[in-house]
Design a protein around this nucleic acid. Structure first.
Lengths: 223, 223
DNA sequence: CCTCTTCGTTCACGTAGCGTTCACGAAAGG
DNA sequence: CCTTTCGTGAACGCTACGTGAACGAAGAGG
């Protein structure tokens, strides 16, 4: 499975990890193997990764990890295999990606329109929580929806849309400056936003003051 | 996997967590590492999160958690983490999103022990919902926990453990034949399982009749 | 509700260390 | 003989790390 050099390098890395705790740099490995160029080390490391003995983060300093020592049996799900499987699946799509990345646009009820929040952060969510369309995520602040099972700190997954049907839970932008999560209803030509908490009152708005930004599609919570 | 500095910081955090119980602030970490600026600490923490050793809540004070100590084998999180997406960070700094695959073991409160359920199905969930350890997922049936914001049909993410502290929401196997999700409490040598619904009554059991199967770690809901 | 304090976040700048790549050459082995 | 494997050296660009200041968010207390 391994050439003499590959084996020597693997043992050296493993020993360093055990004795010092920090993986060696390419320069140090070069010296330990008695080489005069780092590129040889580079190829050896690649070979060890390919064979499932090492794991590494490319372009990161000393980001090496020994997965398996020479002589040890290969684990069931060696990361190398998992990676290649994942890569294949992602490319071809036997089973379409089961996780979707959505932008995380901040916290709601912060008295600030969502547009103002940078959406650099992202959240990876299981695809089965989302329907078709474009989604974003935000964190719920406050307890105005507790009776709907939406608690302070929960992450709401929202499908971006401007339409809402009565009874939907929507993200609404009011007067262009405040964003809330509420039940959506219509009443005599007005829009009524109902909290799910008896401590708060329903609010009536002229349709012109309210802009629907999305419809609640999923929820994440951590304990 | 870790540079000397990264490793030193991780060990410091871990020690503080064990000895004091409270994670250090950035200022304290700065001092412990002999630095003069907190921003260095910030980068180190980011690196540790990226490598899967730490978990944290951004913008929260002392919200740090050690997922893995240097030298410990990579947990469930690592293979999936690599699959998730090559997630190269962009200029501004995007939080690396990771996903973990957990077994989906069926529906709870079905009057059937969890062991009896095949666990062929899996669920892919965002890693940030989970802590360290092994997890599984199940679907909640019934409304006995509505007041805790857990609704019929929600997916519960459960950390497999046999220990529980009073106030935890646990998955409990009763008499080896029935599984429920309830608040865990002790009362005069007995175990009390509290629902979060006034329509149901707390239940008292001899400890010998109850086996804790896990602690609620996260929640997923679909609308 | 407001203010104050603590704490985390971000940016810009600088330095040193580190990984990557490529072209070239030598040996090994079928 | 040709293909692989291994070694070399240098150039390039990214990464890790240190610093200091300004900013912003969260929590505590009035």
């Amino acid at each position: 499975m391994l050439t003499a050099k590959q084996r020597a390098l693997l043992l050296f890395i493993d020993r360093r990890l055990r004795e010092v705790g920090v993986p060696p740099s390419f320069e140090e490995m070069r010296e330990a193997l008695g080489l005069r160029s780092k590129s040889g080390v580079h190829r050896l490391v690649e070979a060890l990764v390919e064979r499932g003995f090492l794991r590494r983060l490319p372009h990161r300093a000393r980001a090496l990890e020994v997965l398996r020592r020479p002589g040890e049996p290969a684990g069931m799900a060696s990361p190398a295999e998992v990676v290649s499987l994942g890569a294949r699946r992602a490319r071809g799509g036997v089973r379409a990606a089961r996780a979707v990345v959505v932008p995380f646009v901040g916290r709601i009820a912060a008295g600030r329109p969502l547009e103002a929040v940078e959406d650099r952060e992202t959240l990876e969510v299981p695809a089965f929580l989302l329907g078709p369309g474009e989604h974003f995520a935000l964190q719920v602040v406050g307890d105005s929806m507790v009776e709907a099972g939406i608690l302070d700190g929960d992450f709401a997954l929202v499908r971006r849309t401007e339409e809402a049907r009565p009874g939907d839970i929507v993200v609404a932008l009011i007067d262009g400056c405040e964003t809330t999560l509420k039940y959506f209803h219509r009443e005599r030509g007005m829009i009524r936003l109902d909290p799910a908490n008896p401590a708060y009152a329903p609010q009536l708005y002229l349709p012109s003051r309210v802009r629907i930004q999305g419809r609640l599609a999923g929820l994440l919570r951590r304990y």
